[in-house]
């Protein structure tokens, strides 16, 4: 953690609308997350933690306030610019892995690299390095249906890191896994933060998973309740 904020939020608010009825989800969020940080977003259902993660990841837009992530004021980017920004700076890890079933593990991991100007050989090298990082080099030609849940999530992690993004966002990355596989994934994320300096923001309900993070941000009814440092 080098201390410079990579994520900055000023008075961020998000409301959804059901016809004319406004349903506020987040209100007045002010937050700084330093580069290299590992934060767990926690809180009860409906507290707005996933919405906050979506805003940080640039896949949703706030209805109020400003946010700057990886040096970019996201409110000022149009949809295509935001897509380009995501491909360069953000890696996603989903609860249900969300691998493409008709592509092999190798091809799934290669997907983000198809958006770059890298040639076939360079892409292969990067994919192999990412697969090595998640210890799945022997499963590269397997389809998702031929992998266990834990292996699928490791492929998803490899996909998230293959383009070397600064920020990893994870939504309940262990939510669909048994405790052994969950522990492996958490160790993997911890290693990515520790060894590669990736900034990680993770939504989780699981206190064990949250314990792997360095900080826990607690949300309550759409507002920041408290941020605590994890003592190990």
């Amino acid at each position: 953690m080098n201390g410079d904020p990579i994520i900055r939020l000023w008075g961020v608010a998000k409301s959804y609308y059901r016809e004319t009825l406004e349903i506020p989800v987040l209100q007045g969020i002010d937050l700084d997350i330093p580069s290299g940080g590992y934060y767990a977003l926690m809180g009860p259902s409906g507290s707005g933690k996933t919405t906050l993660l979506n805003l940080i990841a640039g896949i949703d837009r706030p209805t109020g306030g400003d946010l700057e992530v990886c040096g970019f004021a996201l409110n000022g980017l149009d949809d295509d610019e935001l897509a380009g920004w995501r491909s360069a700076y953000v890696g996603f890890i989903f609860q249900n892995y969300n691998l493409v079933p008709v592509l092999t593990a190798f091809e799934n991991v290669e997907l983000p690299l198809l958006l770059t100007s890298l040639g076939r050989r360079e892409r292969r090298e990067k994919v192999e390095a990412a697969m090595e990082r998640v210890n799945l080099t022997d499963r590269m030609e397997n389809y998702p249906r031929q992998l266990s849940g834990g292996q699928e999530q490791r492929v998803a992690v490899a996909r998230a890191i293959v383009s070397d993004p600064e920020l990893l966002v994870a939504d309940e990355p262990t939510g669909a896994l048994d405790s052994k596989n969950a522990e492996e994934i958490m160790a993997l994320l911890e290693g990515l933060n520790r060894d590669l300096g990736k900034t990680i923001v993770m939504v989780t309900h699981d206190p064990k998973a949250a314990h792997h993070a360095r900080h826990q941000i607690h949300l309550e009814k759409g507002v920041l309740d408290r941020t605590v440092e994890v003592n190990r």
Partner: peptide
């Protein structure tokens, strides 16, 4: 639907 959303999250543009 979910797969397309994942592609977009990864940075695939509308045209692509």
């Amino acid at each position: 639907t979910t797969e397309i959303a994942v592609f977009r999250a990864m940075g695939f543009r509308t045209g692509q």
